[in-house]
């Protein structure tokens, strides 16, 4: 068993296994930090979503908590004007390239973006930035799920599930810069690829990019009375 260390997060004394990533240590103790790309099971964090900023005593400026290992006596603050400003901008940047129609989305109320907005008091609309959203088609080829690239936040969780968990290798990131996207090797339909439609990716997608057709249908069902 690995040793435990004691640290302070937001003035609370908490314990965590030595070497654990700070992000997970906080979440395990019921302290929320916004995050999209990191998975507890992944061996190495990709640190690409840039939302899990915290302040750590002795370190300069906001740092990403997914890239820091906890250590004895560490003093952490999950909120500060600097952290809040970065999270607000990072969050709005993601929204600026996200098909925003929460009410009609299959992941409504289960979406990580909604959770971040709720936890941090952020608006689910663009306040300062221009929309960068292109009109991208939805891949409806799989039997039970769809892929809407217009909602993808490029967290890479689905790719991790595909490559590391079920070891199929059907999907990955293609292209660079603003054109970067999650797709099959040839940027074709999932059903035409080696995808086994095991739905491992759907389970990990934090937003409404990969979703079950069944969930989408529910929208058209009459609202339950109670």
């Amino acid at each position: 068993m690995s040793r435990e260390v004691a640290l302070t997060i937001d003035d609370r004394q908490v314990k965590a296994a030595e070497g654990e990533r700070l992000l997970w240590a906080a979440l395990d103790n019921g302290i929320y930090i916004p995050h999209l790309c990191d998975l507890r099971e992944a061996e190495r964090t990709v640190a690409s979503c840039r939302l899990c900023f915290v302040e750590v005593e002795g370190l300069r400026g906001p740092v990403t908590s997914c890239t820091l290992a906890v250590s004895e006596g560490m003093v952490v603050k999950t909120r500060s004007p600097g952290v809040d400003r970065l999270v607000r901008t990072g969050f709005e940047l993601l929204l600026s390239n996200h098909r925003l129609h929460c009410a009609k989305c299959a992941k409504n109320k289960h979406c990580e973006l909604q959770k971040i907005a709720r936890e941090r008091g952020l608006k689910l609309k663009l306040t300062r930035l221009r929309s960068l959203l292109q009109d991208v088609p939805i891949d409806e080829s799989p039997r039970h799920f769809n892929y809407d690239a217009g909602k993808c936040v490029l967290c890479g969780r689905c790719i991790w599930a595909d490559q590391e968990q079920v070891r199929v290798g059907a999907i990955g990131f293609i292209r660079r810069g603003i054109a970067r996207k999650m797709a099959t090797f040839e940027d074709g339909c999932l059903a035409d690829s080696i995808c086994t439609q095991c739905e491992a990716c759907v389970k990990v997608c934090p937003v409404g990019a990969l979703y079950l057709k069944a969930d989408e249908l529910r929208l058209y069902e009459p609202k339950k009375k109670c």
């Binding site: 840039r50 939302l51 990072g90 600026s96 390239n97 221009r130 490029l154 810069g177």
Partner: peptide, 22 residues
């Protein structure tokens, strides 16, 4: 830089594009 951004992280991928458009 916007064209050369690898696109991995949020701030650079989307932020440089926002700056460029402005």
């Amino acid at each position: 830089t916007q064209k050369e951004s690898c696109g991995k992280c949020t701030f650079c991928r989307l932020g440089t594009k926002q700056m460029l458009d402005i």
